[in-house]
């Protein structure tokens, strides 16, 4: 049977790993290739690069990083950030990425996911869903106004309904631009829609939990995991070894992604796997 998947995520800006890491034994802790190799040694199952370079003109840099990584690290590599069109995907795959993660471009034009999946195969299309729990009810007009601004064609079937927004923290809305822009889209419906359009995986990030270290949003994760048949990667909020276990058991995720706990050496990937194995979760040694 399949093992669960542990994915370290590297935030890369202008070709350098950001966040104040200080790895012992690395010649250059800001070099994504060096960090990728370290995670490889620790037993990572996959790697994700999130390119947070602001300028689209500088795309050559991340492509170079991908090329060098793929020459030295032999495991699945996903690249996200700034992917706008089929050409962006083609170039990344050619450079050695195995999957791309699409976020804002999917919301602006959901058909982009269908085209990308048809062209390159569902297995290399990951749709990143950044979700945030509603803190106050929304009216239909408010929801539609946000949707008009963000989605080509409106896509009314994935929007929140007034009823959804009334319960206490029940519904999660999809956000773009790193959690800044609300869209009026209901995360659960959106994830299902992405699956229908050909996404191969969903990378689900709880924007409420991101950076908090209080654990994954297991309620939201399980809700989406139960509704979809494609793999779900849980992200956002992991702070302890037990959080990983909960993500798989309570959240029913297929994979867990984390950045800072690995960056800041709070524990290694090896420690996560040993812990999971002790508690009866199937991991790759």
């Amino acid at each position: 049977m399949l093992a669960v998947i542990i994915i370290p995520c590297l935030d890369v800006k202008d070709g350098r790993v950001v966040k104040g890491i200080n790895f012992v034994g690395l010649k250059d802790a800001g070099d994504p290739v060096e960090v990728a190799k370290l995670y490889d040694e620790q037993g990572a199952d996959e790697l994700t690069f999130l390119d947070i370079t602001a300028s689209h003109e500088k795309r050559d840099i991340i492509i170079d990083v991908v090329k060098h990584t793929a020459e030295q690290v032999f495991m699945p590599l996903t690249v996200g950030g700034g992917i706008r069109n089929l050409d962006d995907i083609r170039i990344l795959l050619k450079a050695g990425a195995d999957k791309v993660s699409i976020n804002t471009a999917a919301i602006y034009d959901p058909d982009f996911v269908r085209e990308a999946s048809f062209k390159f195969g569902a297995q290399c299309i990951v749709v990143a869903v950044d979700a945030r729990r509603l803190t106050s009810p929304l009216t239909k007009d408010e929801i539609y106004a946000m949707a008009q601004e963000n989605i080509k064609g409106g896509y009314p079937d994935v929007l929140l309904e007034e009823e959804d927004t009334k319960g206490k923290g029940a519904a999660c809305e999809v956000f773009t631009h790193g959690g800044r822009n609300p869209t009026g889209i209901y995360a659960v419906k959106w994830a299902k829609k992405m699956e229908e359009l050909g996404a191969g995986e969903i990378l689900l990030t709880s924007m409420d939990r991101d950076g908090t270290k209080i654990g994954f949003d297991c309620e939201l994760t399980s809700k989406i995991s139960d509704k979809l048949t494609i793999p779900i990667i849980a992200s956002g909020g992991v702070g302890t070894l037990e959080h990983f276990y909960d993500g798989f058991k309570k959240g029913r995720a297929d994979a867990a992604l984390a950045a800072s706990v690995f960056h800041y050496k709070e524990f290694t990937i090896r420690q996560v796997k040993d812990y999971l194995k002790e508690r009866g979760v199937r991991v790759r040694p």
């Binding site: 399949l2 093992a3 998947i5 191969g200 793999p231």
Partner: peptide, 17 residues
Amino acid sequence: FARMETKLKIPHMGWNS
């Protein structure tokens, strides 16, 4: 696969032994 207790997804994607 869909009827199984832990439903198995297709494609078979990931690490297996």
